[in-house]
Simulated scan of single mutants.
Amino acid sequence: MIDSIMKRIEVLLEEADQMDDARRKELQGLLETLKEETKILAESHREEAESIAGFTGITTQQAVRKSPDPKLVSLSSEGLMASVEGFEASNPRLVSAVNALCTFFANLGI
């Protein structure tokens, strides 16, 4: 399930013609890190990893729309942040990746 969500996100990025190449590459790098970390988490916490991937997909989908709704981007980002609560000690790289991703979305100026 995580792989299929990440594939869908990759397609969204490829089709997001309103995003310049530099931002797209930055987002792809952030997503790649998150993908690696969610796969590690899935070994011990599958449902939580799928939730993180799901919120990542929703947030990305909202952020790359032709006319993104700032409220929906904010709400989905909040869900993404909530999905990693409790993993600060056991998976700090995962939490860091989610923080970086949410910061990226916040800085898009939506």
Rank of each mutant, 00 (worst) to 15 (best):
L27E: 00
E14F: 10
T33A: 10
R24A: 04
K25W: 00
L41I: 11
L34F: 02
E14Q: 12
E37Q: 15
M19E: 08
E15G: 07
L34R: 01
E32A: 03
S44Q: 12
D20M: 08
E37V: 15
D17M: 13
E15K: 15
A22T: 07
R23V: 02
M19S: 08
I40T: 15
E32M: 01
K39V: 07
L41W: 02
Q28T: 05
A22V: 08
A16N: 09
K35R: 14
S44W: 07
M19D: 08
A22D: 09
R23C: 04
L34C: 03
D21N: 11
K39A: 11
E37D: 12
Q28D: 03
Q28H: 01
S44N: 13
A22Q: 09
K25C: 01
L30K: 01
T33P: 03
Q28S: 04
A16P: 10
D21S: 13
R23W: 05
I40C: 09
L13I: 13
E37T: 15
D17R: 14
I40P: 10
R24C: 04
D21Q: 09
E43A: 07
L31V: 09
L34E: 01
A22P: 02
L34H: 00
T33W: 04
K39D: 12
S44D: 12
E26L: 02
D21G: 11
R24I: 05
D21M: 05
E14I: 09
D17L: 14
L13G: 13
L12V: 05
E15F: 15
L31F: 04
E15M: 11
Q28I: 03
D17Y: 14
T33N: 12
M19L: 13
L31G: 09
K35F: 12
G29L: 00
Q18P: 15
E36W: 07
I40V: 15
